[in-house]
């Protein structure tokens, strides 16, 4: 059985659920919903100086959203908030206008097949948007 979207790498990311959970003493927190499908991401983030020390998320969502949250949990720690803002913009551009990813963010390419399905873009973006919301007002 094949699917253009649900490739092994996406399924493995969702299965691994990197960064799943909740931080006890976060510096920022956000809950984001997609009211159309009921997806929900509760995200907590802590900072160490100018970089993200840890991200944890509780994601009740479709496989694409869970895979995106997992990738976020894997890649965000050690990055600065502005780097993650750039990652979110790169992901959005790839989905909306097939923009080519920089070598730094090749990991996001796993979601490239989703570009053909605009109704699913929000699923992939939700965890990244939750991180942006949790970081609002924090040092960039």
């Amino acid at each position: 059985m094949t699917s253009s979207v649900y490739q092994q790498a996406i399924k493995e990311l969702a299965q691994a659920a990197h960064g799943s959970g909740r931080l006890d003493h976060p510096d920022g927190a956000a809950r984001l919903d997609n009211p159309l499908c009921g997806d929900r991401v509760d995200l907590t983030v802590s900072l160490a100086g100018e970089v993200i020390a840890a991200v944890a998320h509780e994601t009740r969502a479709c496989l694409l959203c869970r895979a995106a949250a997992s990738l976020l949990g894997l890649t965000a720690p050690g990055r600065s908030p502005s780097e993650m803002r750039a990652a979110t913009a790169a992901l959005e551009a790839m989905l909306n206008s097939a923009a080519v990813l920089s070598p730094e963010w090749q990991a996001l390419a796993v979601f490239a097949p989703v570009a053909a399905y605009p109704s699913r873009h929000g699923c992939v973006l939700l965890p990244f948007q939750a991180l942006q919301a949790a970081l609002q007002g924090k040092p960039q």
Binding site: C37, D39, A61, L63, L64, R120
Partner: peptide, 13 residues
């Protein structure tokens, strides 16, 4: 164990 949007996506394909 499977989200409805994932079901719809595979069926849509």
């Amino acid at each position: 164990g499977i989200h409805p949007h994932d079901v719809c996506q595979v069926l849509g394909e």
